[in-house]
Design a protein around this nucleic acid. Structure first.
Lengths: 237, 237
DNA sequence: TCTGGTGGCGATACAGTGTATTGAGCGATA
DNA sequence: TATCGCTCAATACACTGTATCGCCACCAGA
């Protein structure tokens, strides 16, 4: 066995001194990528690359990509502050609704993951806990349907908002321009006369602040809950 | 140039007599695949294969895959029957809410596409037209927020339902079993004592019919709209 | 100091995706 | 009959998630 020195032997590839990893670090990195460039930027290869690691290294910390996504969602649930326990159910639910909306403003991708699969991480459970706790109705079923309705509304409303934002971003048309029927396609469709009501709305509709729209819809739901439940059955305001 | 007969020249691949295609046929096929096996079954290759065609052939009828998805959504909007024009706004909106819910029952994948990108196909526009038309408030803004709130609620509620159904399907646990904390993980989490309210709800909660849950939440929203808008400003019931 | 195992991690591989490009065959036209 | 143009299949590319393999550094024991 020759032991001679071979001067042109390639050096071992200079590894960029592997970062020590952890599940938390991976999740944080994935969230940063998603915040910056959307969910498309969260591929195992890209997350790994951002950590100076090979793709397969991540599998030491997570089972599958879906698990990573679940962890990201739960992490964001951790950013949500619970309502003041002394608050009445209405302020409590309103607080939570705003918290969710704000969280998805910070992390637009959230709306694509939340509700897509059941979220049962510790932070999600804590969120459910404080949400249920803030509604002090006596009847469990009444609490469930009140919370369910509010969450359903919040989810749908936020989704609509984000979708609009994305559409603006990708078409370059603001919703206002769209509503003036700037798109040639829309213009053509309206010109067919098959959508008279819609046309009237598009041309005459005003453009309220999205936050106000959200609050108004939320108020419908809360008001409906309030009138449907006999005053005797609730605690607090 | 030799013209000799080469006996071992391979025959041109016996084409299975290419089906004549059309955008409508492609969309219908994609919907069938999605109904049967979920959105995962809708890849250009699979759709094309189902039509005895190569993947690239579809590009003669479709610009991109996203366009195909948009067309699928619009097709389903076409299945939705508008409310009776004579109906008051409340029955009208209720009708539409149920139509949407039923449509997503028939096509579960719909909930993953709807709202994800703006839907402006002819059927979607017709749907918006009849929805707006059924709410005869005088103020355009009031109509918009009423319709917006109802649609947001419907969207979120249906999404929750479908997510539950899918979770049941994939875990084999019915929601009822889950609520008895059959999952060892959930059981462990509840045992930590950090989620007292949640635990109480899981153990003591009843299991109302999903349709009733949906209707109840919908009723909150409608009731809220009704009480928030002065009676003088609405037409019909 | 040498040896043998072990475990972490990179490289490779595979099946799948959407889509751009290429090229072959056919029908219509000059 | 020669050629053009069109239609579609084949090929190719970059990318995905993930299974498998194999190298290499480290550590235990002799």
């Amino acid at each position: 066995m020759t032991n001679e020195l071979v001067w042109d032997r390639p050096e071992p590839p200079s590894r960029p001194s592997p970062t020590p990893l952890s599940r938390a670090l991976i999740v944080r990195t994935a969230i940063e990528l998603a915040d910056a460039g959307g969910l498309d930027e969260v591929s195992l290869r890209k997350v790994a690359a951002a950590l100076n690691a090979g793709p397969m290294r991540l599998y030491g910390y997570i089972e599958t990509k879906d698990e990573l996504l679940d962890l990201m969602v739960d992490e964001v649930y951790g950013e949500i502050t619970p309502p003041d326990p002394a608050a009445d159910w209405r302020t409590g639910l309103r607080h939570i609704a705003h918290e969710i909306r704000n969280a998805t403003k910070r992390h637009e991708w959230l709306i694509d993951l939340i509700g897509g699969r059941p979220n049962r991480g510790p932070n999600s459970l804590a969120f459910m806990e404080s949400t249920l706790a803030t509604v002090g109705f006596e009847s469990i079923d009444e609490v469930m349907s009140a919370v369910g309705a509010v969450m359903a509304y919040v989810y749908g409303a936020v989704r609509n908002e984000i979708t609009e934002i994305r559409a603006e971003r990708s078409t370059g048309l603001t919703e206002e321009q769209w509503q003036r029927a700037s798109g040639p396609y829309i213009e053509r469709m309206l010109a067919t006369g098959r959508y008279p009501t819609l046309a009237r709305f598009i041309y005459d509709g005003s453009h309220p602040d999205p936050a106000q729209v959200f609050d108004r819809g939320l108020d419908y739901v809360l008001e409906g809950i309030a009138t449907r439940h006999s005053p005797g059955s609730k605690r607090g305001g």
